[in-house]
Every structure is written in C-alpha cells, then in structure tokens.
C-alpha cells in the first residue's frame, strides 16, 4: 500500500448541503471517497491510501484536473482505493462533491 498526500490552494469557499459525503465502495477496481468540510486555512487537502503502488504521478494528474473543475476551499478529501482507473476516480470525485454540495449523487 501507499499513502499519497496532496494540497491545493486558491479554491473558493463553498456552502455544502451536508458536513460530509461519501461515494463509492472499497472493492476491486473501485474506491471510496469521503468529502468533509474542515477549516484548513483555505486549503483543499487530499489523502489517498491505495493498494496500487507507484501511481503518484497519475493521481496528481487526476486530482489537478478535479481541482480545476471544483476549486474547493476548506475541504478534506479522503480516499481508500483498490486500483480504480483514472476515469473511475474522476467519476467518484464528481459524485462525492455533487452529494456534498447538494446536487444529485
């Protein structure tokens, strides 16, 4: 296993519909994503625990893309991954943030 940490700055404060939201399941080729509101001095902190070792650069690219679409401030994103593909990761990130902000999951 590998634990990866990322931090993004320059996001906008958000007004979530719920304090936390979860998307996905920790199963093969899948992952779970927990999105929580937390005072982080305006940062968006991401922690990934993944069973697939050595894919840090790809996580960086997927999360950069996510933050470009959803620049969130004071949000903690926690991920438990069992080898989800980048497309699945992006989908689950969007589902989790939609549920968090009050859209449909």
């Amino acid at each position: 296993m590998e634990t990866l940490k990322f931090e993004y700055r320059g996001g906008r404060p958000c007004n979530p519909a719920q304090a936390s939201a979860l998307a996905g399941v920790v199963g093969s080729g899948n992952l779970e994503i927990l999105v929580e509101q937390e005072p982080l001095n305006g940062a968006c902190a991401v922690e990934v625990v993944t069973a697939a070792v050595g894919f840090g650069a790809i996580w960086q690219a997927v999360l950069d893309d996510f933050f470009a679409r959803h620049p969130l401030a004071d949000v903690r994103i926690s991920i438990n991954d069992v080898g989800a593909t980048p497309a699945v990761v992006s989908l689950r990130l969007d589902q989790a943030v939609n549920a968090f902000l009050g859209g449909t999951a």
């Binding site: 304090a19 936390s20 979860l22 920790v26 927990l34 069973a51 438990n80």
Partner: peptide, 22 residues
C-alpha cells in the same frame, strides 16, 4: 459511527490491505 468517524479495521492495515471508513 458514520464514515467520518473513521472507525476502521485495525487488522487490515497490518496486512497492507485498504480499509473502509465504515
């Protein structure tokens, strides 16, 4: 004890296996 409580398995991490928040 929702996922945000993070009451996870103490055993799986020792086995190098991802845990689930719930």
């Amino acid at each position: 004890l929702p996922p945000s409580a993070r009451v996870t398995s103490p055993h799986l991490r020792q086995l190098d296996t991802p845990a689930a928040f719930d």
